[in-house]
Nucleic acid binder design. Structure first.
Lengths: 345, 345
DNA sequence: CGAATCATCGCAAACGTTTCCGAAAATCTG
DNA sequence: CAGATTTTCGGAAACGTTTGCGATGATTCG
């Protein structure tokens, strides 16, 4: 509605005595225009403060030169923590900008359906490509994006079939390694703290946990799997449940490391000292948990590098104009994490 | 570059035997088209999966129907964490959607200049209006936005002159109230933990702190003001500095409550028990700090409501087509916070 | 030196939508 | 019932950019 003051390409062209097309080409660095004119145009554009109108350019070219990262803002439930997306987008942005792409984040609030939210964003063509997070075990968004042939990468694995790119932290591997470590230390009843979400991370983590148990020849006990609702308060829930068990576990494995805070507190109140009487391992090393005592054993990942890699995968997807043949299994890449040895387990 | 499969308004129109204009009007709910045709068009649009192309519509209308929230992702330095923006955008989104506006977040990474970042976003017309955060004491972005006559609201107060809308938490009031509380309890040397940033929050907080001191007839000592770099690790820095002081303070006031985590730890290691030997007050009640022992005295704010209010202010700004007369002082609104009485101070 | 290639640039047609303006039909008014 | 008004819709011109195609002059080649 509002008239934006900016000058257009036409003004710049007539101002220079050149044609619109030449100016356009110069601004896009086309080799069809001579070096000198190109410089001249660039300089004048800078002087007049001309910046190409995004709507016009994307209407014509069909691309917005942006990729969108969709993210749930439901802070109680989403598994990612205090600075996860921030650190991630640091790297993602860096990676994308090297390909001339801009990053924007689409926040999906808790009273919106995350599927509909994405469909709308896609249909409105808010971005050329999408990163979907909070991936569900069977995620309809994946089908939608594939059907519409819009480039995307799933941040998180999924059981949804099809040929698409996915990048995830190695939830299964981490869980297994953690269990291996615990059983090697003699633990035989290990409580598993998951999330109430239906994300695939939960399943992968559970799966790795089971693998770890069978590695040690231990039985799987469904009773030992807890799924509290809240990311942070969930730790206290877990502690309460743990304290009520007839045969008390000797170790806890948490998919959400911030749960350790409430867990520690409740345990201490009950006279159980974490790290001594009860081993605790968290999924990801988290600055927020840095000051827990004892320090929390967990797995480290360079989130900036993770985001950077995500951008690289995205760029690859964007250059894959058309999938040659349909692969029925996703091209999943697991990002490595390394154990950081700490006091809690 | 990629051909998006979607059908256009033309297809839908010819499919219905109607004109493009009628379809366009129907989709926008114009009163110029009869109720029945409107319903018919809507139904057919739904059936064919037609969704208006955003580029075309915003090229013509000049507005994208989106507002952008700019956010620094430099997690070490920015005062607000990811959960802050998440909770905020929950409310903001709700508020904006009631006016048919979409919200998108523009993440500015640490290696980008946040001014240039905004200029670019504005010039590319990525959104109709902007919320700028991490507001500097004198913020050139404000001048830029005002000059370009693009609607915005500053999330954070500033000393930049001019007629614009700003919304902020009451940093000054909180600091003053905290100091009042501490002096009333007999404290005379209160350490102030700020951030190394040049944001106005720091100045406001400092100002309130000074006000609080003079309320109690106490002198201001520059030595007692610390500005650690890191949001989380800063607390440990503060503790170290505190322990080295010849005349040791008896209370600490933190603009960034997560600093309390490192602070607590370092103090405990030195045999000083927070809450008993050393009063601690944090700025904002934060779920991340919930499990600190002793519980952290701080100030509560409903971030969702804060975001909602932010949206309301934004909508008001968008409807203010043109400022009638230039007011030289910003229209600043302070959002209330309430003290939550806890054990630490 | 004529022809062929190449470098550089202009013309004009899109891209998909909104909206001004006018026309036709329907309704109202006196 | 004639004229005036309202309702409902269609035609067509924008919005600012990209890009296929053609034109011009310069350069190269045999």
């Amino acid at each position: 509605m509002k008239k934006r003051s900016g000058i257009g390409i036409r003004d710049l062209a007539s101002h220079l005595g050149l044609s619109i097309s030449t100016v356009s080409r110069a601004m896009n660095g086309s080799p069809e225009v001579s070096k000198e004119t190109q410089d001249k145009i660039r300089a004048e554009a800078e002087r007049l403060g001309y910046r190409p109108n995004q709507s016009g350019r994307s209407l014509r070219s069909g691309s917005t030169n942006t990729v969108a990262l969709t993210m749930r803002t439901d802070i109680g439930r989403t598994v990612a923590g205090e600075t996860f997306f921030m650190a991630l987008s640091e790297g993602l942005q860096a990676s994308l900008s090297s390909a001339g792409l801009d990053l924007l984040i689409l926040p999906c609030s808790s009273d919106q359906d995350q599927n509909e939210f994405l469909y709308r964003a896609v249909d409105r063509h808010l971005a050329d490509a999408f990163v979907i997070s909070n991936v569900q075990r069977y995620d309809p968004r994946i089908d939608y994006l594939r059907r519409g042939d819009v480039p995307f990468v799933a941040l998180g694995s999924s059981e949804t079939k099809g040929d698409y790119a996915a990048l995830d932290l190695d939830f299964a591997g981490v869980a297994r390694a953690a269990v291996d470590r615990l059983t090697a230390a003699g633990h035989r009843r290990i409580l598993l703290g998951l999330t109430s979400q239906d994300t695939n991370s939960n399943f992968a983590f559970l799966h790795g946990y089971q693998k770890g148990l069978s590695d040690a020849g231990l039985p799987f006990d469904e009773e030992l799997v807890l799924r509290p609702y809240d990311r942070i308060a969930g730790g206290a829930e877990i502690a309460s449940a743990l304290l009520d068990m007839k045969v008390r576990p000797t170790a806890v494995l948490l998919i959400q490391e911030t749960m350790a805070m409430g867990l520690y507190q409740k345990l201490n109140q009950a006279g159980i000292s974490p790290g001594k009487d009860m081993a605790v391992i968290g999924f990801r090393e988290n600055p927020v948990c840095r000051y827990l005592a004892p320090t929390l054993t967990s797995f480290r990942v360079d989130l900036r590098a993770y985001g950077y890699r995500l951008g690289e995968v995205m760029i690859r997807e964007l250059n894959l104009s058309r999938r040659p043949e349909a692969n029925s299994t996703p091209r999943l890449e697991l990002f490595p994490m390394v154990l950081v040895d700490a006091e809690s387990g």
